[in-house]
Design a protein around this nucleic acid. Sequence first.
DNA 1: CAGTCGATGTACT
DNA 2: GTACATCGACTGG
Length: 218
Amino acid sequence: MEPVLNSQLNQRLSTQFFTRPTLAVARDLLGCRLFTRLGTETTGGTIVEVEAYHAAGDEASHSFRGPTLRNQSMFLEGGHSYVYLIYGLHHCFNVVTEEPGTGAAVLVRAILPTVGIETMHKRAGEISRAGRLGEARLLAHLGSGPARVCRALGIDRRCDGLDLVGSDRVWLEPPERSLELAVATGPRVGITRSTDLPWRFCVKDHPLVSRPRIATLG
DNA sequence: CAGTCGATGTACT
DNA sequence: GTACATCGACTGG
C-alpha cells in the first residue's frame, strides 16, 4: 500500500541547487517534490507555488533587519530549512538559499499531495467546509496555502534549521520527469511592504493552486 | 460568490 | 502595545 521510496539515498536536490540566486531557485522549485518522514509516516507532494524573500532591499522579509533568535536559520547556507510560527497558530516552511549569511529564502505556498494522502487527511482533520468540496478540490485544499502545506506534512518548529540535503526527516527531490512548466509570476500574498516585487511564482493554469486569482498575476 | 473577524505566540517598537 | 509571509467560520447578497 505505502509506496516504496528510494529518495533517502539518490535523487535529492543538492547544495549547489540551493546556493544559487534566490529567484532562480524559487522558479526551479516548481515541480520539485517536498517530503517529510516523521515517525513512520512519509508524506510528500509536488510544489506548485512559492515566494522568494531576500535580505537586501526586501522589507517584507524576516531577514531585512538582520539575524534574530527567530530568523537565524535564514542565515544558514542554502539548503537548510527556516520554519516559523505565524499568527500564533500556523507554521510556514521556507528553503534557505544562497551563501551562508545572506538571509534569503523561498516560502513554499502550495503543494499537490502525492504520497501519504491518508496521513495528510488525518492531520488536517475532517473539516465541514472541505467535506462539501469535490474530490479534486478536497485534495487541493490539503496543500494550498503555506500553513496547510505544513499541516499536511507535519512540519513545525522542530523542523527549523534542518539540513535538507542530508536530513532523513525533511528533503526535496527534483521533478519525476523533466518537463517544461508554464510559470506565472506576480506580487506576493499577505504582506504590506515591498509589495511591488513580483516574487511569487506558480505553475500556470493549474486548477489546484492556492489562490484562484491567478489572473491578477503579471 | 465577497467581505469580515477571531484565534493566538512571538518579535520588535 | 502592535504587527504579523494565515486559516476557517461566519455573515450577507
